[in-house]
Design a protein around this nucleic acid. Structure first.
Lengths: 200, 200
DNA sequence: GAAGCTACCAATGTATGCATTGATAAGCGT
DNA sequence: ACGCTTATCAATGCATACATTGGTAGCTTC
């Protein structure tokens, strides 16, 4: 999927200038790649990219969880976490991966956004956004994510009782397991559509 | 320090368009703030920003250190680390904070860049860049950073013998200590120039 | 004298035009 | 026929021009 500046401007019914500015922003955020005379394309996420993004996000989320547990969050926040987890449970029961993904996304957004470090929030949200782009891809190849649900619940439990140590440990272990699973999935995808190239 | 688009374009001897594009990039990277009709200013780093940036950077660097220790880096890389630390030691001996900062920056850049996760590299380098903007500020108020040197050396040692556990522990402990010290410095700065506002 | 309204103006956002550049392809030489 | 050279042309980067918007200052009124 390739596109050129003038072409895109035409399609959007605006001049090149605002298109160009938008593309600069998108490039900075890592969503498109601009190659001077070869046009632009939405960044293809190679298996390596997926791995790397997941890793960074994991690291930031663990930090967020720790900070959350340290600062004893409000009852309202905790209720929101509980709600997200309940939604995940329901979706799992109903075997509805669509809804599960949505609830999972909400959970992670909550975790990130309530950590209190605005810079961490901004960065982590960008990574979450990117991670979300291949969630759908992986969810198909994935066993029902029962572990995710119980782990998320356990993390919230640790946060609730203000136990950063446990929050970090649980979330980190969970992410490690997920990374291993991800590697399996990626290997699988890679061998099944070898010359198909990276996934955008 | 305020500036307007046309003014800046005039000063740089170019038209508004490229200036504008550059500003968009800088805004995305968080180096300037654009407020529609009030002009632009280089982002003021409040004490809170400094704290937050340091925290995120710490978290990313710990991850980098772990990955480095896991992957057994080359002799050449290790030599570069050693060189940077030697430079830090020399600068400390010579009581030359300028050179110490430079060597410290080199060390952290090395640590980040050789971690093997390109996304982590990009993100961490942006934070390091920002952190560097207030290094000079803090170094004046800071005791001679002997701990930094021995800690950095210890981290490299752990990396050399492929011991991720220790690398993480050491770096994390060091960062924790540094964050405490930073808080003291920030409190001090805040009380000493109260109405001066944030530091850009 | 102060508060609200209006008119003006400058900065922004967008559009268009021009120069440069490099990619493609046609022509030439071997 | 294959490779190299060169010419063309379109995309990019920059400059300029225009429309819109919001801020400010001056005026009016209470």
């Amino acid at each position: 999927m390739q596109a050129l500046e003038p072409e895109l401007a035409l399609r959007l019914g605006m001049s090149r200038t605002p298109v160009r500015e938008a593309l600069i922003r998108l490039e900075q955020e890592g969503f498109v790649e601009l190659t001077p005379r070869r046009g632009m394309r939405v960044s293809a996420l190679s298996p390596r990219d997926i791995r790397e993004i997941t890793e960074v996000l994991a690291c930031l989320e663990v930090e967020a969880a720790e900070r959350l547990a340290l600062r004893r969050c409000t009852a309202d926040e905790l209720a929101q976490f509980d709600a997200a987890i309940a939604a995940m449970d329901a979706a799992l029961e109903a075997k509805d991966p669509e809804r599960w993904n949505e609830a999972d996304y909400r959970f992670h957004t909550l975790l990130i956004e309530s950590c209190g470090n605005r810079h961490l929030v901004e960065t982590a949200k960008q990574y979450l956004e990117k991670a979300h782009r291949f969630r759908a891809l992986t969810s198909v190849h994935r066993a029902p994510p029962v572990y995710s649900n119980v782990n998320h619940a356990a993390v919230v439990e640790a946060i609730r009782r203000g136990d950063p140590q446990s929050a970090v440990e649980i979330h980190r272990a969970h992410k490690r397991r997920w990374l291993r699973e991800l590697d399996d999935i990626l290997r699988h995808l890679q061998s099944s559509d070898d010359q198909a190239g990276p996934h955008g």
